[in-house]
Nucleic acid binder design. Structure first.
Length: 284
DNA sequence: GGTTCTCTGCCGC
DNA sequence: GCGGCAGAGAACC
């Protein structure tokens, strides 16, 4: 399915304008509002909004919000105080930032500033029908479910994924959590009622949310997911977001297949993908 | 809780 | 392609 671009020259012009607007957002002290951005692009607010979303896959607002979040992360590592970092990043109230800090940073600003280093991630490795499974959780929720053949490789994978965190081998209590996740992997239809700690860009989060809405026993194509999140042209970006998923089964990227129904790649091996899908299809 | 801003479906040019 | 309205929803104060 190829998107028809009737006028390539115009499309290019739009891209150029959107890029410029993105620069404006990035360089502005305060978050510009929609009107200002539209004026900058030389379009009406309405039309500009649509063009921006078509080109980037994000609305101007969510782009700006995501950028501000990135900026505050950078600032927290650099500036003298937490408050300074918050205001420098363009937030105009630090109390409201604190309210949302868990959402934005996954932790409090001060612990983030400590390099994110002092956050603890507990993990344990077990066995399930698909091979070895590693389950890791931060204080916020489950942050990784990895599958593989080699337990050591899984541990390394986790280390690469969370280089700044203290990784702590699981204790007895944690083993219960692992057991729960293993149970869920064996029978995904029962659902996993654990909080998840999702770390990704705004776009990735949208993709992952869409994946979680695919019911067990059915599949969707990358194109369908792109349509569902309102970015029909972002098929490749969708595929990349799926590949970036570290929560096997909990975010069911295994339910995404090629347009022709064939299985495409799977981070943890196509055979596991096939096994999962077969099991889910049978459980219906 | 009211207000303002964002977002989208729909229509007209 | 572009602008605009209406109305719902989210963010803000």
């Amino acid at each position: 399915m190829k998107a028809s671009v009737k006028n390539p020259a115009l499309a290019e012009k739009h891209v150029a304008r959107v890029v410029e607007v993105c620069r404006l957002i990035e360089s502005a002290e305060e978050m510009p509002n929609l009107k200002q951005l539209a004026v900058h692009a030389g379009l009406s607010v309405y039309h500009f909004h649509r063009v921006f979303k078509r080109v980037t896959g994000l609305t101007p607002k969510s782009y700006a919000v995501a950028h501000r979040a990135k900026r505050v992360r950078d600032q927290l590592e650099r500036s003298g105080t937490v408050t300074e970092a918050i205001y420098d990043a363009g937030y105009n109230s630090n109390s409201r930032f604190y309210e949302k800090s868990k959402q934005i940073l996954g932790m409090t600003p001060s612990s983030y500033r400590a390099g994110g280093a002092n956050t603890e991630i507990r993990f344990a490795i077990g066995e399930c029908s698909l091979g070895s499974i590693l389950v890791a959780a931060s204080g916020k929720g489950v942050c990784a479910i990895l599958l593989g053949d080699d337990p050591d490789a899984l541990a390394h994978d986790l280390q690469d994924r969370f280089p700044k965190s203290n990784l702590i081998g699981g204790d007895v209590e944690f083993e219960q959590l692992v057991a729960k996740v293993v149970g869920f992997v064996e029978a995904p239809a029962i659902g996993l009622d654990l909080p998840l700690d999702l770390r990704g860009t705004a776009f990735q989060q949208r993709v992952w949310q869409a994946l979680r809405e695919i019911p067990a026993g059915s599949t969707a194509s990358y194109t369908e997911i792109a349509n569902r999140i309102g970015s029909p042209k972002a098929v490749r970006a969708v595929a990349r977001a799926c590949a970036a998923n570290v929560l096997a089964v909990a975010i069911p990227c295994h339910r995404v297949v090629r347009n022709d129904g064939e299985l495409s790649g799977y981070r943890w091996g196509v055979e596991r993908k096939r096994a999962l899908l077969k099991r889910e299809a049978g459980a219906r």
